[in-house]
Amino acid sequence: MATSPAFVSNPTIEIEEISKWFGQKVAVSNVSCSFGAGITGLLGPNGAGKTTLLRMMAGLIRPSRGSLSVLGTNPRNDTAVFQKVGLVPEDDAVYGFLTGRRFVEYGAELAGVRNPSSAAAHAITAVGMDDAAGRRIEGYSKGMRQRIKVAGALVNDPEVLYLDEPLNGADPVQRVRLIELFHRLADEGRTVVVSSHVLEEVEKMANRVIAMVDGRLAAAGDAAAIRAAFTDIPYRVRIDANVPRKLGSALLGQDVIRSVEVIDETIHVQTDDLGELGRMLPSLAQSLDVRLTLVQPEDLSLESVFRYLVHGR
């Protein structure tokens, strides 16, 4: 199974041909994949089915078809698995009448944690909410609510952590801090699944991506591997040089190049073979006595990959 990029070896979460429909609307269609230790980004535009898939994994909703297991058991049938699972839901759902500390302690009590107060204090410190923990949640900003939800999910020391748009409303400093926290949890061998439609966030957090479009699994792997699967779409490469027009003209004659544009003294080429371009370009520049200052693929980013997945271009 691990040969396909949608699957990992030693999975903690296994999903097999899972579908979910609400009346006539198909939210998730025939998705098979697995998740293991580390951070996996669940990526897709709004309405792609990410939250539905995450909710099925968490046991909040029941698949219409297919099966899944979390830590070897079906979370719908075996509530004991929730001892080792944490969820940060997307919705702004919190008990506003509780203080932040009480909210996290409540989670610890329900999870059967031995010392709820100490576990809550530890989780609150991890998300940097010590100063505000004694205040009622209804007075929190959106970012603070988000962080207290993360603390609530961490309080039972979960092996599997689901994060649905976890950085919503967090300020830049807190974003960095939360991303560091998620990386630390992943480094400890936990399975962290992050759902987001913000590419930049996923790119910073996840070393593996499951991309969803229209309820289907569109691609899986890291951004470069997913990009490589688009064999019909040439790579775009930016080249800066001291004599761009001379180099641009020379590039036009090369087999590996599909097209060349020189815009504002910058060369943009399209090629089917990045490797061959990388091998050929230095010697060509040397022969022309042109100095290269920058060679940079323009569409290896997750954003480009995502654009191809969603729009085809």
């Binding site: 001892q83 969820l87 329900l110």
Partner: peptide, 11 residues
């Protein structure tokens, strides 16, 4: 939607 805090616990 606070039910997840109740239901996703080992109870």
């Amino acid at each position: 939607k606070t039910i997840s805090y109740l239901a996703l616990r080992p109870i």
